[in-house]
């Protein structure tokens, strides 16, 4: 890429994704400072490999792929093991609390009662499940883009996303029951 285009490309195509990259990095590292270091590293690598980027193509996916690789190859080892957030134990909701193993949750109602619990529940998922939910549900990447970012087939994206969402729903459902959520069938925890 011609040298005079570099700043233009950064300003017009790369910088607008800084906040999204920070959110992704934050949920991978659990730490604000590590997240900022990872974002900075991502932009440094983008600068280093700028010649492999084609102007006007999918800059967001390109940057997310760099960030994901930087995290796996370098940061995952450096960053201290995150505190394991056991989202199940404190909630102490038994499976038998859920009639037939399923509870219909009105996510609108639950949203009113939730603060950081969505973030905590997300962060309690495995790395693979967390990243796929962040890429699809939070950042809105297509399955094809996610497959490219993660270097996995589209079928893997679909099945992983399916399992990740179900696990997240299960965790939030348990939390809803812990809050004393009552579904439309008149069933409530501790009844």
């Amino acid at each position: 890429m011609a040298e005079q285009h570099i700043i233009k490309v950064f300003q017009e195509e790369f910088f607008p994704h800084m906040e999204a990259l920070k959110t992704f990095a934050y949920h991978l590292t659990y730490n604000e400072n590590d997240a900022e270091d990872l974002v900075q590293e991502t932009y440094l690598k983008a600068l280093k490999f700028i010649n492999s980027y084609v102007e006007g193509t999918n800059s967001k996916a390109w940057l997310f792929k760099i960030l994901k690789n930087a995290y796996i190859n370098e940061y995952r080892k450096k960053i201290k093991t995150p505190t394991i957030l056991d989202f199940n134990d404190p909630l102490a909701v038994q499976e038998t609390d859920m009639i037939g193993g399923t509870v219909e949750i009105n996510w609108d109602d639950l949203a009113m009662s939730l603060g950081d619990e969505v973030t905590l529940a997300l962060n309690s998922l495995s790395y693979e499940f967390k990243e796929i939910i962040l890429l699809c549900d939070i950042e809105g990447f297509s399955y094809e883009e996610i497959a490219d970012i993660l270097d996995v087939p589209i079928g893997t994206v679909r099945s992983r996303l399916f399992r990740a969402r179900n696990e997240l729903k299960e965790k939030l459902t348990k939390y809803a029951l812990y809050l004393g959520y009552q579904d439309k069938r008149g069933f409530k925890k501790n009844e």
Binding site: I7, K22, T23, Y26, A35, E36, Q40, A111, K169
Partner: peptide, 29 residues
């Protein structure tokens, strides 16, 4: 659909610090 909305609205999105923005801009310069 509501579950997706809950995720999108419920997730923590920390802001980018001015320091980071400056560092990245400086690196490019």
């Amino acid at each position: 659909k509501k579950f997706k909305t809950l995720l999108v609205n419920g997730i923590l999105r920390p802001s980018v610090s001015d320091e980071l923005i400056k560092k990245i801009h400086d690196n490019v310069q």
